[in-house]
């Protein structure tokens, strides 16, 4: 939902970042306001996933220049855990398995860390149990998954549901969903997308990182951005995604070649 008077939640200015001294992001500019859903598209290697990791604070990615303001503060100087507590959420493309750590306990500690920052009361094990069972409905997840170790032995679809469950619990201000649709069959995709739609509100914003149009059939973005060579090459409305479905990404190469980049 686009509102001209909405508050900017995330402002990315000329962001450059590298991994092992190899530059991946080369000047990303993006502003996301409250209530908006943005889709970031592009080929493999265009820098989409790197952008999401940098925003979440992955230690392997080094920001070389540029800035990211989040709710008026410098996001880049915050530790990853601090970003999460303040409402930045990254839904992982490949959620990590953590053997031996109970999913329920993990969700509770994580939720309480966020709640403390929000000035909300800490939930003890009993209250949390009720709370999480309520949130499970968002992704129609079987409570049995709470008893297992974090993501251990989950199928691809179960892992993605577990990500959206975390999103539902953490009540983020900025939700960045990295290839949330990958590995999902059409039913699971609908459930996951339904969860994301339920959680979107006029007070938060969503950044969908995706390859495919099919997720955008379920979650209608307000803006679509196309990334190439580590920056945003083109921005449009939801119709841009449909156009890309038809024309593909060859024009990206031509544009970059014309600029002398590729």
């Amino acid at each position: 939902m686009i509102r001209p008077d909405a508050e900017p939640l995330l402002e990315i200015n000329d962001l450059h970042a590298s991994v092992e001294d190899k530059p991946i992001l080369n000047g990303v500019n993006l502003q996301v306001k409250a209530g908006e859903i943005h889709a970031v598209m592009g080929r493999n290697g265009s820098g989409k996933s790197t952008l999401s990791k940098v925003l979440a604070g992955h230690p392997a990615y080094r920001v070389t220049s540029g800035s990211v303001r989040y709710l008026g503060r410098d996001l880049l100087e915050l530790e990853p855990e601090e970003r999460s507590r303040l409402g930045v959420f990254l839904g992982f493309q490949y959620p990590i398995e953590i053997p031996g750590v109970s999913n329920l306990e993990f969700l509770r500690v994580s939720t309480n860390a966020r709640r403390e920052k929000q000035g909300k009361e800490e939930l003890d094990t009993f209250d949390f149990d009720d709370h999480v069972r309520d949130r499970l409905q968002v992704v129609q997840m079987d409570p049995a998954f709470l008893e297992r170790s974090v993501n251990e032995g989950f199928s691809g679809g179960e892992k993605k549901r577990n990500e959206i469950l975390q999103m539902a619990l953490l009540d983020p201000v900025v939700a960045i969903l990295d290839e949330t649709d990958s590995g999902l069959d059409i039913d699971a995709l609908r459930i996951v997308a339904g969860g994301v739609n339920q959680l979107a509100s006029p007070d938060n914003c969503t950044l969908l990182i995706t390859h495919y149009q099919r997720l955008l059939d379920e979650i209608i973005p307000d803006y679509v951005h196309v990334m190439g060579a580590g920056r945003i090459l083109r921005t449009g409305g939801s119709e841009l995604a449909l156009e890309l479905e038809k024309i593909g990404y060859d024009w990206v190469d031509q544009q970059l070649a014309a600029e002398g980049v590729a």
Partner: peptide, 30 residues
């Protein structure tokens, strides 16, 4: 197994501090 950077980052990105993340994984392991 190796306690990996990605596992620690995953826990951190859910608001769990680095030290607590390590100790959570170790005590889960034990």
């Amino acid at each position: 197994c190796r306690m990996s950077e990605d596992q620690l980052f995953y826990l951190q990105s859910r608001g769990i501090g680095f030290e607590e993340a390590v100790s959570m994984m170790v005590s889960g392991f034990c």
